[in-house]
Design a protein around this nucleic acid. Sequence first.
DNA 1: GCCAACGTTGGC
DNA 2: GCCAACGTTGGC
Length: 136
Amino acid sequence: MKTKYWLVKSEPFKYSWEKFNEDGRTFWDGVRNYQARNNLKEMREGDLVLFYHSNEGKNVVGIAKVVKEFYQDPTTDDTNWVVVDLVPFESLKNPVTLEQIKAEESLKDISLVRQGRLSVMPLKAAEFDKILQMGS
DNA sequence: GCCAACGTTGGC
DNA sequence: GCCAACGTTGGC
């Protein structure tokens, strides 16, 4: 099975990377957008997910790993919405800012830049690697 | 705090 | 099924 790469956004105020590391595991809830939902459903166990802080920080701070594929969002009865389980995998030594990403030619097409409001998006392996490289 | 972008809703 | 109005997100 081929590993896929993703990026998710969270407002640190709501759920930060630090909190995620304290918890050790979380289900990714609160997605109320079909496109983001469809991306969640595409995630497979073992896929790697960049964790981006929106609003405050505006940087990629770490990598999470998918440990459980999508299931009904436990915070709602609406069967439209799903969550996946994530665990922290690795922190980036140097968080990569949105500014750096925008300035990087090879990253100018990623959804984070092109479609600012999307909260769960796929990344190409090359894009994922590039961001890791910038963060190490 | 403002506003642009864009997804969603609802009237026709 | 179109499209205007509205709500939400997120960068600045």
